[in-house]
Design a protein around this nucleic acid. Structure first.
Lengths: 225, 225
DNA sequence: GCGGCTTTACTTGTATGGAAGTATGGCTTA
DNA sequence: TAAGCCATACTTCCATACAAGTAAAGCCGC
């Protein structure tokens, strides 16, 4: 019998932290934007302390920088950090794809097919947020299918950097292109062709290498390095 | 002309954080150990607030858990987290090794050879800490050689979990074995044989798969999952 | 002896005031 | 006009007090 998991009621600080993190990832808070303990505290009706602690956690996520006596700012998107994160994802997901190609777990492959359908619908309706979430689930299934779902959580911090970029760059063309590449990956996995799956996956993730410069030129004030 | 990089004086909170993190990684603070804001504050002569903020950062590193109204504890070593971290490292370093094998940057290869000498000396003198540090530098050179040193920083959080295990498991036999495997890797890199380098590296990192169960049985109270 | 309640000593969470550092705009002075 | 000083209005950091929840020891009644 499973024991129920007892979770303590979320503290003010952690709620503020979650709220800020979501806003940063969605691009609602722009890179370089200034935050103020006092201002947010007044806004939500608490003292400065919980807000301050939320800032510390946000800095721990790499999404903000606290400069003593000067102010707290949303981190700009570091080009080199994005490139590193991308390289890591490519390496890890390649290995995961090879594992799946040899095991071909039916339920996971079916779930991936379903996500692709989901992405088609989201694309038709131009629902950007839903598309991104399904895209995330598709890649998460790679880890789950290989029996290493925990890997995905470890990459959370890295993905945070890439997610901000994705919210900036997502266009209708990109979505259609992404779906085609997902199909290529899944076809190779279902065929049990590890080499083809790895190639398709690396191609897919290298897409970002062409998007990054485009966005960096378009919104240079959002980037560093 | 390079401008000097201005770093603000380290705050009390960040100093406490650094201190705690080092102690956790060296195994000085055992997994499951209890921490107290008040106790540490009195010990170092400050108020609870900076200590508390150091706890928050430590929790962000995945090295502690703050349980509201109950206490703060050093995280136990999560078996699944270690396995995930290992899998990620294997995937990433394999790719890095392949890059180096094709480029063969002379200075980096020489530096790696030097680190191996360093490791031999540390092994002779049974200097565990020095050995581990050199081991770290050896692997870091993989990233640097491939022109992606930033990757290594991104893996810092993952390595933190593995480092604690390494401090628990390090024996004279392991050190000698590690050195031999480092030589295998470097030989393959210098020969420009990407496949051999990848094989040697994966073999090396899979060593942990045999060490983990041994330690987990020996000190079960340090582990979860 | 033993189950259950109460007290008490802890824990972390939040509020608030002041200290110290930084940036900015305006004034002074040449 | 322009350079330099200075007051002022911020910022984060730290200290302190109090609030609220937890856990364990001890007492009480049976």
């Amino acid at each position: 019998m499973d024991s129920p998991v007892i979770t303590p009621p979320p503290s003010t600080a952690s709620q503020v932290h979650d709220w800020l993190r979501r806003r940063v990832q969605r691009g609602d808070l722009a890179p370089g934007a200034r935050l103020s303990e006092t201002e947010i505290a007044n806004e939500i009706g608490t003292s400065r302390q919980p807000v301050r602690e939320a800032f510390i956690r946000l800095a721990g996520d790499g999404l903000a920088e606290v400069r003593p006596q000067r102010g707290t700012y949303i981190s700009k998107i570091s080009v080199s950090a994005v490139l590193s994160a991308r390289l890591i994802r490519e390496a890890v997901e390649s290995d995961l794809a090879r594992m799946i190609a040899t095991q071909r777990p039916a339920r996971v492959l079916a779930a991936m097919r379903e996500e692709i359908d989901h992405q088609r619908r989201a694309d038709d309706r131009a629902e950007v947020e839903a598309f991104i979430e399904s895209d995330d689930r598709f890649h998460r299934l790679l880890a789950a299918g290989a029996g290493h779902e925990a890997v995905w959580n470890d990459l959370e911090r890295l993905k945070a950097q890439m997610n901000r970029l994705r919210h900036l760059s997502m266009r209708a063309f990109d979505r259609a292109h992404t779906i085609r590449q997902h199909v290529d990956i899944l076809d190779a996995l279902e065929a049990g062709d590890a080499d083809a799956a790895e190639r398709a996956l690396r191609t897919h993730l290298r897409q970002m290498l062409t998007e990054l410069p485009r966005i960096a030129v378009q919104k240079p004030e959002y980037f560093t390095e």
